[in-house]
């Protein structure tokens, strides 16, 4: 499937802010099943952008805007081709329990951490799957999707991206991050390596839940097939309309954007994603391109008004729950 994706993020602030520092993970990954032909990133206010691969192989773009500004706009446009293999979950040979993997770096996808919290309610859910020695792993995955789908309701406004699965288990309602984190927790409780995927879904005929914008799903490692992409929110395997942006242990590793700024303003964020099915590769594609957007900075602003607060704020885009504990910044060595 050949897709053109535009992924735009508009951050606006109720007052002037300064010293914005941002990190983006919005570049579609290069994978066996996903070939990126072009990536174009436009950022305003104009600034210099640096990129690197993080330890998970996700490509990261970082930038700072130090002058006074009250808006940031990010436009990421990609052209890519997706060709995934799907498997028949009811016909797999890997049996539970899985041998501990020889690749120890998979530890990261087998231990709990961050929002993926081990708890009795999770264990209960796993217990109800009635997994027995010899149960095919594909069938376990299927039962897990069934269980999550039957017991939890997709509804926005109850959780945030940093909500631990204990919240989701208690409320019974949440969005794709919650479904994915819970699903990962169940897999890890069973000793199946599971990782988080952030991405974009091109809408197909049938209605998919949570597809209007970015989406989150999960990959389980089947020794026989490798990583198998499953969308627990919609109880299905990821198809060719699923575009992978980042993979990680959980949401914390793949947040599409996170930032910090100085000022007292309240931030609001609007994300719009559009995707177009292409029939042929457009001409004159740039493999990778960076462009400035004409969003203003106000260098004279500081002289007109005094800044009352010096505190850094974590941009809402990061949406990390912050509890400011007594900070000493150093353990007593």
């Amino acid at each position: 499937m050949l897709l053109l994706i535009t992924h735009n993020t508009e951050l606006s602030y109720t007052e002037m802010i300064s010293e914005s520092v941002m990190e983006l993970r919005v570049t579609p990954r290069q994978e066996m099943y996903q070939h990126r032909l072009s990536f174009d990133l436009a950022i305003g206010p104009p600034t210099s952008v640096n990129s690197y691969f993080d330890w998970l192989g996700n490509s990261v773009h970082s930038f700072t805007v130090n002058g006074f500004h009250n808006a940031i706009r990010i436009e990421a446009t990609s052209v890519l081709e997706v060709d995934r293999k799907t498997i028949d979950l009811m016909d797999t040979n890997d049996r539970w329990p899985l041998e501990p993997p020889a690749d120890y770096t998979l530890c990261d996808y087998m231990q709990f951490g961050g929002p993926v919290v081990d708890c009795p309610e999770l264990r209960e859910l796993v217990h109800d799957l009635r997994v027995r020695p010899g149960t095919p792993v594909g069938e376990i995955a299927f039962r897990m999707m069934q269980s999550v789908h039957d017991r939890f309701v997709y509804e926005q406004g109850h959780t945030t991206v940093s909500s631990p699965i204990t919240d989701f288990l208690r409320l019974g309602k949440g969005v794709c991050q919650d479904f994915t984190h819970l699903f990962i927790g169940m897999a890890r409780a069973l000793g199946i390596p599971a990782r988080y995927v952030s991405g974009i879904v091109h809408p197909m005929k049938e209605a998919l839940r949570g597809t209007t914008q970015t989406h989150a799903w999960c990959e389980l490692l089947f020794p026989e097939f490798g990583w198998v992409a499953l969308d627990p929110t919609n109880r299905r395997q990821a198809g060719n309309n699923f575009v992978t942006l980042g993979v990680g242990r959980d949401y914390r590793d793949v947040a599409p954007n996170k930032g910090v700024f100085r000022g007292r303003a309240v931030e609001s964020m609007a994300v719009t994603v559009e995707s177009t099915l292409l029939q042929q590769v457009p001409e004159e594609l740039a493999a990778e391109r960076l462009r400035p957007l004409p969003i203003p900075v106000y260098p004279g602003w500081a002289r007109d008004r005094r800044i009352l607060s010096n505190a850094f704020q974590v941009a809402k885009s990061a949406q990390q729950a912050s509890q400011i504990a007594q900070q000493t910044g150093q353990s007593a060595q």
């Binding site: 520092v21 640096n50 970082s62 930032g259 910090v260 505190a311 910044g329 150093q330 353990s331």
Partner: peptide
């Protein structure tokens, strides 16, 4: 730096740290 890793850069580590320098890790990495 006499500041633990956790507090060095709110963008990379503890997001609630007011003690560090946002973006420091990127400058370090470069």
């Amino acid at each position: 730096r006499r500041l633990d890793d956790d507090f060095l850069d709110p963008l990379s580590f503890r997001p609630d740290s007011l003690l560090g320098v946002p973006g420091l890790m990127n400058a370090y990495r470069m």
